[in-house]
């Protein structure tokens, strides 16, 4: 009898790559870019804001695709992608909100405005806190995956509707990237782009670690289910 060995991926190079990009991004953010004309140094939080917002968009995109994938293919791997990305997305949304609030205070003088973009982000945050609660409070593994997928898909359709519902309020959120191109100094554009990449890498690293942990968790659950006799569980 030959025993096959299950291989565990042990590489950590992607974590170190992420760290390197982050140090570069921080350098560009603080040292390389000049102060903004009116906002002075306070505009440096913009790189954090923009980076986490971009990563958030991608990460929630993963949640949506993975949710459809789960309902279609019914493999728990899809659901793990949805779970990991939703968790990381919620964290990134928190970053977007916190950095936005601080920036709003220095730039506009008020902590909070009921602008469509900001309000929609807040709703998104509440929505995904509810999503994580739903995951946590549904005990059956398969049912949890199903319910979470349904919620994520409905949520995806809600977000643009929310945006347009709030749109009738006066919008004061600055549009940095318009249809006429990017509205920033070149060095700031570089810092912004590197910051975006850094946040994407951070999100990716987070998701990958969470994915592996969730897979381990599911496997432990599977063993536990198997150790119990079928009659017990019926």
């Amino acid at each position: 009898m030959t025993k096959r060995q299950t291989r565990v991926r042990t590489g950590t190079w992607w974590l170190w790559l992420m760290a390197a990009i982050w140090v570069v991004a921080l350098y560009l953010n603080f040292i390389y870019t000049p102060d903004a004309k009116y906002l002075l140094s306070s505009e440096r939080i913009f790189y954090v804001h923009m980076g986490s917002a971009t990563a958030m968009t991608f990460v929630y995109g993963i949640t949506f695709v993975a949710s459809i994938g789960y309902l279609w293919r019914r493999r728990l791997a899809w659901d793990r992608w949805a779970a990991a990305s939703a968790e990381v997305g919620t964290l990134l949304t928190t970053m977007v909100l916190v950095s936005g609030i601080i920036w709003g205070r220095t730039a506009w003088g008020s902590w909070w405005t009921w602008d469509p973009t900001i309000t929609t982000t807040l709703i998104l945050w509440v929505l995904f806190l509810g999503y994580l609660l739903l995951r946590d409070w549904t005990d059956d593994r398969e049912r949890r995956a199903r319910y979470a997928s349904v919620l994520a898909i409905v949520a995806f359709f809600l977000v643009p509707l929310d945006y347009y519902a709030v749109y009738f309020l006066k919008s004061i959120h600055p549009a940095v990237i318009t249809t006429h191109g990017v509205n920033l100094a070149p060095s700031m554009v570089l810092a912004m782009l590197v910051s975006m990449v850094a946040f994407m890498f951070l999100a990716a690293a987070w998701i990958l670690i969470r994915l592996r942990l969730l897979a381990a968790q599911d496997y432990v659950q599977e063993i536990q289910d198997r150790v119990r006799t079928p009659l017990d569980s019926m």
Binding site: I123, L124, V126, L127, L129, L133, L134, L151, A165, V166
Partner: peptide
């Protein structure tokens, strides 16, 4: 909790 965002 789930319904509040949807009733906005």
């Amino acid at each position: 909790v789930l319904l509040v965002p949807f009733s906005v």
